[in-house]
Design a protein around this nucleic acid. Structure first.
Lengths: 111, 111
DNA sequence: TGCATATTCAACCAAACGGTTGACCATACC
DNA sequence: GGTATGGTCAACCGTTTGGTTGAATATGCA
């Protein structure tokens, strides 16, 4: 059961949360480990993870005393499909893409 | 010059703004005509259009006394590409998609 | 038992958001 | 000139957001 686009896009609008998703792309992680690279409190990260979970972008499973966070690609894929409808009739501007993605990689949301 | 993902996703998180984008997919429109189907003030729609323009999702051009709004697919496409990276390694769950998109179409953001 | 670790909860704060209203430009038309 | 139309601006308002802190809860371990 996928969350509405509202929640998905709102969740993706925050650079910290996008960075978390990128980390989870590598592997599942415990909350504390997710929090480690960020210069903010554990509680703040816990809230961010709650937002991501509400949006259906991740799931959390508690095993023992640690809560594991797992990427859930379906929600994002649904949003991606919605978006693609707006671009499919025009040729892709690849140069613009590359400049864009490069800027994102070097931006503040990739600490 | 594309706006950062922050602005793009934040702009997409609002159902009114997504509905506006869907309308502009059909054709360019004047601000007043964009506002017409919505149960809110012209000023509110003007603000929404400002958010969309800041995110690079639309451009606005004033001809005479009417300001024309035009969809600008590059920004959304850039965000779409970013998102696709999260789904490309797993098979697409098409059933989930369809249920999702259907729910969106019948939702309150398509008045 | 007692203590450390993992995580959340609750209260608070400043800033941003989404909307309203009324006044204000700018352009078109008689 | 005068008036209607198209759109923005500015001030305001209630709610949400992103963060903090300190206390609380739950699990693991000696």
């Amino acid at each position: 059961m996928t969350a509405p686009l509202d929640a998905i896009f709102a969740a993706l609008a925050d650079p910290t949360r996008r960075a978390i998703l990128a980390m989870l792309l590598e592997d599942d992680m415990a909350v504390t480990d997710v929090a480690h690279p960020f210069a903010m409190s554990l509680a703040a990260i816990s809230k961010h993870l709650g937002v991501l979970a509400d949006a259906g972008l991740i799931t959390q499973e508690k095993r023992g005393r640690v809560k594991w966070c797992k990427l859930e690609p379906d929600a994002m894929r649904a949003a991606s499909v919605w978006m693609q409808g707006f671009g499919q009739f025009e040729p892709v501007n690849l140069d613009a893409f590359e400049r864009f993605l490069e800027a994102e990689l070097n931006g503040p949301e990739n600490p």
